[in-house]
Design a binder for these strands. Structure first.
Lengths: 320, 320
DNA sequence: TGGGAGCATAAGTTCAGCCTATCCTATACT
DNA sequence: AGTATAGGATAGGCTGAACTTATGCTCCCA
């Protein structure tokens, strides 16, 4: 049905050069080889592509049409292959990165920007989603890698055993916090289990477990049913609720870094080390990383280790 | 440099079906064959196109890019090949026809139109030019055939021996004519050599030879230098000049058929049979005519034999 | 009138691509 | 757990497609 594609390549050269010998030379083939390929193509298409005119090849209407189909393809391919071919020297091309929205919107653009100062040939496509959609996108090949909030036990995503490689990137400190007013009115220094569990709470829609975990982490006992006054599927809105004094909620330290600094939001600190949430780099296990990917990841990891970034994730440094 | 094109075809199927076995089945190949082709393509491009995920193939960024290049080509080719392939059953496609303007503008559109009543899949590209540009276009493969005014001895076009096949299509009668007024004032029945050569003449730019030939044809002697009052490169303008009474000029009977009928233009008739100009069908000798071409040419030749067309070319029938 | 240029044809050779068989690993089923 | 299944990779052998050289044909040109 479809003709042999390599013959189309030969045809393209013949048509472009209007000569079999010239095409043969360009293709590093002998003249009969090219001549035969052309004849076979014409046989396949059941249509003469050139009328032989002594020394000249005159394309027929069919030949002209075919060339119009083949020509743009060859041209696209020529430049396309160059950019597809793994860049061995310099990073380039498009990087498709997934991340949780709260984390990504704050940090990723700045890393992309600083990376492009050194490698302006690299472009980015960021996708902010929850963990499980990101995993799906990775599996579908629509992301090169993702940054995921791996608070949950790792194995939980699907049954897949070793599909993903998971490398910890940074720990974000999780804090239970409320507004200054709420703290003074309801807590006022009493960080006891009994006092805390009697108050109001705000929670992310699907992360009620984190609250429970918080109590287990600090008091080694499970909290009974908590009074969730606001259940919401937007972390930004949750933080707003905290600021308004609706109650206590768990959030990442870096997200309320400023507010904790000026005292408008108060973290419930205890003697124990704060609970952490591991942000991990997730990739397809078997995927061979490109130079571009490797370079960017190095950039990301180095950047994450800088004090000004690290501090935002570590409340302790703030208290000093 | 460029990858093997057939591997691209294989890749296209793999990507489209997201499976090697499926692609193998569609291509009527074994699974290892397809698997190997893909590996070789990846080696050629020095870039992995899929990451192997157990049962799944997940395209990499490179794979996605490549597919975006290959996909439109395959689609274009699929439909393109159908129309390129010589239609064995019905005429279709585009016919590129050349003709002299005077002849073509009057007759060709009507033949194209009537042909399309039976074969609406056929489209036309008409090119009106003088004989020698038409020959050049034929040689360059930009016309499928041409109708040419072969008044001149055939061999004159370039030195080419048998490049063209020349088949007479119709004879157009050439007449020397002037306006009714001019005839009554200057000729008034005196068709003698001496009288005629003393009058005023109009001539097409490059066809002065035809006038000379006219005199040789009717009187067997060469005319001396004629008084050319209007030399012009538009035959339409020449006819206008004749109508205005500027003098006598040679034109084709069918172009002034109406005017001769109503007497506003008078042909100089003699006892001898009128001089004729052969309109011939010219093609590349070695070109294998397509079904579409053959069918249209039959249509054209049959149409040309119809009385209502034939009469326009033959002044004698008018006189009856 | 012979030489050169361009394409077609003939015949021999080689290697790319295909096949079968087997292996490997993850998943689905019992 | 044990088995079956399904998708893909690997190994090895074979066939034919595509390449080569040599030659023929035709036109063009000096």
């Amino acid at each position: 049905m479809l003709p042999d594609f390599n013959r189309l390549k030969v045809f393209h050269h013949i048509y472009a050069l209007n000569s079999i010998v010239a095409a043969a030379h360009k293709l590093h083939l002998s003249q009969p080889a090219v001549s035969q390929q052309l004849q076979k193509l014409e046989a396949e298409l059941k249509a003469p592509l050139f009328t032989r005119l002594h020394k000249k090849l005159v394309p027929t209407a069919a030949g002209t049409r075919l060339f119009q189909i083949v020509k743009p393809f060859v041209e696209n391919l020529q430049e396309g292959v160059e950019s597809i071919r793994q860049p061995l020297d310099r990073p380039s091309g498009n990087l498709r990165i997934g991340a949780p929205k709260e984390f990504g919107k704050e940090f990723l653009p700045q890393f992309c920007h600083s990376f492009r100062e050194n490698f302006p040939e690299v472009t980015f496509a960021l996708k902010f989603e929850e963990a499980s959609p990101l995993m799906a996108l990775l599996q579908a090949g629509e992301l090169d890698f993702a940054l995921v909030d791996v608070f949950q036990s790792k194995g939980q995503f699907l049954g897949n055993p070793d599909i993903f490689s998971i490398d910890p990137l940074i720990k974000e400190e999780l804090v239970l916090a409320c507004s200054e007013k709420y703290y003074q009115r309801e807590i006022n220094g009493d960080h006891s289990f009994q006092n805390l569990i009697s108050k109001d709470f705000l929670s992310d829609e699907d992360d009620l477990a984190i609250l429970m975990h918080w109590f287990r982490h600090y008091f080694n006992k499970s909290a009974p049913k908590l009074n969730i006054v606001l259940m919401i599927n937007s972390h930004e809105a949750l933080i707003s609720g905290i600021k308004l004094g609706m109650g206590m909620g768990i959030t990442s330290a870096h997200l309320v870094w400023t507010e904790i600094g000026n005292g408008s939001i108060v973290p419930i600190v205890t003697s124990k080390k704060n609970m952490v949430n591991r942000i991990s780099l997730i990739q397809l296990q078997d995927k061979i990383p490109t130079l571009t990917e490797k370079t960017f990841l190095t950039h990301l990891q180095q950047g994450m280790r800088k004090p000004e970034v690290l501090n935002k994730f570590d409340l302790a440094s703030r208290r000093v």
